[in-house]
């Protein structure tokens, strides 16, 4: 009986941890996808200074560890810029900025893979740049970037576990706390199952999207 109570308590705690993990995951995704697209479009713009700025931004984000960026925003910003952020906000900002760089490169590749003829056809039909992007180019880009975007998204689920450095009780840190307290390895297994379920759901979602876009060939 005592064991079952303990197990229930453990699973309850881990559900709370998983809740935080999912909260970080979805909040990041909601902000980072549009930001990534924006960065890609600016990076592709003909205005050199802005394009170069985006190149530098992408280099910084991809060139330093995500954990370092987390630590910087949470611990160093208060000192160098007098900006103090709560742990959740700091984590979201770090994840959004970091992932936007990766998504930007995926989107850039996708946008550049669209044939020039598509732009020309849109232009001769009188469409503006914005109309061309929104109606002709980006809908085709989505199909082409689905696989790499799904990769990044699944990586993000697992990268959320880095928030342990900010002492946030996400799924993995909760599991570790219980393991250290109870000298029982089960929480690690439970955590693994939680992550696997999350990524399985994502895999299914992306498979659905791929099927949706499979109605046309290129």
């Amino acid at each position: 009986m005592e064991n079952i109570d303990k197990l229930l308590e453990m699973v309850g705690l881990m559900f709370e941890g998983a809740g935080l993990t999912l909260e970080i995951f979805f909040t990041t995704l909601v902000f980072t996808l549009p930001l990534g697209l924006l960065v890609a479009l600016i990076r592709l713009s003909k205005f050199r200074p802005l394009s170069f700025l985006m190149e530098v931004y992408i280099w910084l984000m991809r060139g330093t560890p995500l954990m370092l960026q987390l630590l910087f925003i949470y611990y160093a910003l208060p000192i160098v810029a007098d900006i103090r952020l709560p742990d959740f906000s700091a984590a979201i900002i770090a994840f959004v900025l970091n992932y936007a760089a990766y998504f930007a490169e995926i989107f850039r590749g996708g946008i550049q893979s669209i044939e020039r003829g598509q732009y020309e056809a849109a232009k001769t039909l009188g469409m503006t740049y914005v109309q061309t992007m929104r109606r002709i180019v980006l809908p085709q880009v989505i199909k082409r970037v689905l696989a790499p975007v799904s990769n990044e998204t699944i990586t993000l689920v697992k990268d959320t576990s880095l928030v342990y450095v900010l002492a946030m009780n996400d799924l993995l840190r909760t599991a570790r706390t219980i393991v250290q307290r109870e000298f029982d390895m089960t929480p690690f297994l439970v955590a693994a199952v939680f992550y696997l379920v999350m990524t399985l759901v994502l895999t299914k979602v992306f498979k659905k999207l791929e099927q949706h876009y499979a109605v046309y060939d290129e």
């Binding site: 044939e115 003829g117 598509q118 020309e120 056809a121 001769t124 039909l125 009188g126 002709i136 809908p139 085709q140 199909k143 046309y216 060939d217 290129e218």
Partner: peptide, 15 residues
């Protein structure tokens, strides 16, 4: 917009 154009490679919108 007073001119329509037809291309060698068609350039239809595949989606």
């Amino acid at each position: 917009s007073k001119m329509g154009m037809v291309f060698q490679q068609f350039n239809l919108f595949p989606h």
